[in-house]
Nucleic acid binder design. Structure first.
Lengths: 136, 136
DNA sequence: CTGTATCCTTAGGGATACTG
DNA sequence: CAGTATCCCTAAGGATACAG
């Protein structure tokens, strides 16, 4: 009985990562939290890719269940939640940055600011630490 | 009609990367080429995740169409092909390494050798250059 | 061995009405 | 505003027979 442990096709870490956050939406939600500083349900709905309400609720629940983000009540407002990344979620930043570099380099119409990508590419690990510090 | 120019949901580079290689199989094929040095159709079929023949053929064709790998005839054997990564495909290595780090760190049953992950984590950018050099 | 062709099933996703 | 609940549908994937 591995109730908590999802059954992976394999324990290859690449496969595991993909099974946990490789669906169509999870990484975009995490992107919104990390880069657009979004924290509330309604904000995720406004992103360019237009996630629908049921899918968003489902993904938020899954990500919380996997310990990637946590949901906390707003003190002022009873029915308002705040979504923040756990350490496990923040640990996805380096991978996201590599996805940005690759996606931007190979898409002529990329939405990523050229400077940002260039800076990112040059600095890599050092830059990652900077970004993390700024985010925290 | 969906041939050359894929219509992306958005040109966010994270989204683009995911739409190009974010399916269930592409990255595992690329992993096999990069890390297990596989080059032939039959070899991909033997991996732990057990891809089926039609899906494999489909993915190989898609990856070739997107310029991520290239297919060349073996000189000795007419009906044998050799699959190799293009530069665009090799550029995925840093992202794969980050996926390895994250997946291994957060899966207690990971198949990744602890030493490798530790070395990878510590060296990051430098290590990536080493790996690339070794692969080429 | 290197693939195609078929058939079939299902999970994932989208639209939208509804609730507190 | 912050979600649930339904309904529906398609693309993605799996099994397997077959072909060069």
């Amino acid at each position: 009985m591995k109730a908590n442990n999802p059954r992976f096709r394999s324990h290859c870490p690449i496969n595991v990562t993909q099974e946990l956050v490789g669906d169509r939406w999870s990484l975009l939600i995490i992107r919104d939290i990390l880069f657009a500083r979004k924290t509330h349900y309604g904000e995720f709905l406004t992103s360019a890719e237009r996630i629908s309400t049921n899918i968003l609720a489902d993904r938020l629940e899954k990500l919380e269940r996997h310990g990637i983000l946590s949901k906390t009540r707003e003190t002022e407002n009873r029915s308002r939640y705040r979504y923040v990344l756990t350490q496990k979620g923040q640990d996805l930043l380096p991978m996201l940055l590599e996805m940005i570099i690759w996606g931007a380099r190979h898409d002529p119409e990329t939405a990523a600011p050229a400077e940002f990508v260039e800076q990112l590419t040059q600095h890599r690990a050092d830059f990652m630490r900077q970004v993390l510090a700024a985010v925290e």
